[in-house]
Design a binder for these strands. Structure first.
Lengths: 192, 192
DNA sequence: GGGTCAACCAAGCAAGCGCTAGTGTAAACG
DNA sequence: CGTTTACACTAGCGCTTGCTTGGTTGACCC
């Protein structure tokens, strides 16, 4: 067993699993469906993953890790004004939600299917991501760009953004940047 | 079979089912678990519901219907200022999310497990509820209380509110009314 | 050119699944 | 009184589930 391995094959299988988990949900996706999608037999699956749970963990870990990288890059690349950083975070968030959509939808919907061990591990990753948000919110509060409680504001903002996976249509007239701009405008006092 | 019946017994069973669906998820909740929780044998369950799907439908329908009633009551009972109506809707939303928590969590998480027929039926109920929100948002826009696109703003607001089921702790220091006030303050230009 | 190793397969087990069929029973009804 | 109705039971069918076992293959290694 390859348990802790990070082989490219495993990454590819993880990507395919994410797609199926989105389509069917974790519980309804059988190991036989996963295997077929991957072009192997169901037994061979357990060469790459200890059990079905581990596949779910791999999917969510991959997505969260990417989100962290993208957000950090976006913050590093923009100037230091609170407004620019707020925009950058909102754009980065929506960007990951789109490019890595499957993994994120799985993370949002199937989090509770994780066992205790995986959940505590992934919680740290998620907390690191949320800490980025709270930091940017803090800066915006300090500059008087927004008002309110940092905890509540960051929760509300992330809720509004994460909720987009339920209604946003990438083929529609609105771009992710439109959404980000509108959201930032909504919560800032003086929008331009 | 009592299929279309709305007996009190069925309502009680629906309430218990909602609790289990939240704890375990719909797919992981077996008819045997449901029956045990209800104090009957698994076969007897199908006297009250045609199949397992119908239990899910009943749970979500109950919750959505209650949300509609509460929101309409709240709107009818407050004065006509856009600000008061905005507050009333936010409070009503959080109130249902708390009092009818199980049913709403199920609605948010297990919507995709509904079959096509049930989904189309329940979509109408949900649309009626969302229409209330859009109407109140429209009024707030007209009064200049908030700015932006009515569609986006209502989506963002509902996202922020629905997301509370993931982090809000009723035993904590914040009341639902605190949350509602903070949210309205966040999106309005001049908060008193 | 024997040894190693990741990757895969065929076959199937034990458990659990949703649901059905047929029956019993006590209260309600005419 | 006999009949109906609501609710529950027992027993189990047919199928699917996650996962295991033991073995095969082909590429690479010294």
């Amino acid at each position: 067993m390859n348990v802790m391995n990070e082989s490219p094959r495993r990454k590819e299988l993880t990507r395919l699993a994410a797609q199926l988990f989105v389509q069917e949900g974790f519980d309804r996706t059988t190991v036989r469906m996963l295997a077929q999608e991957m072009g192997i037999k169901s037994g061979s699956l357990f060469h790459h993953f200890r059990d079905k749970q581990e596949i779910l963990t791999a999917v969510i870990e991959e997505g969260t890790q990417n989100a962290l990288v993208i957000a950090r890059d976006a913050l590093a690349r923009c100037d230091h004004s609170a407004s620019a950083r707020l925009h950058a975070m909102a754009r980065a968030h929506l960007e990951t939600l789109l490019t890595d959509r499957n993994a994120h939808v799985v993370a949002l919907y199937e989090w509770r299917r994780l066992d205790a061990e995986a959940r505590s591990h992934l919680s740290h990753l998620r907390d690191a991501y949320e800490a980025l948000w709270e930091q940017v919110i803090d800066e915006a509060l300090a500059e008087g760009l927004i008002h309110g409680d940092r905890f509540l504001v960051s929760r509300f903002v992330m809720g509004a953004l994460n909720w987009t996976v339920r209604w946003y249509d990438p083929a529609g007239p609105r771009t992710p940047d439109d959404l980000a701009d509108e959201l930032v405008a909504m919560i800032t006092r003086r929008p331009a």
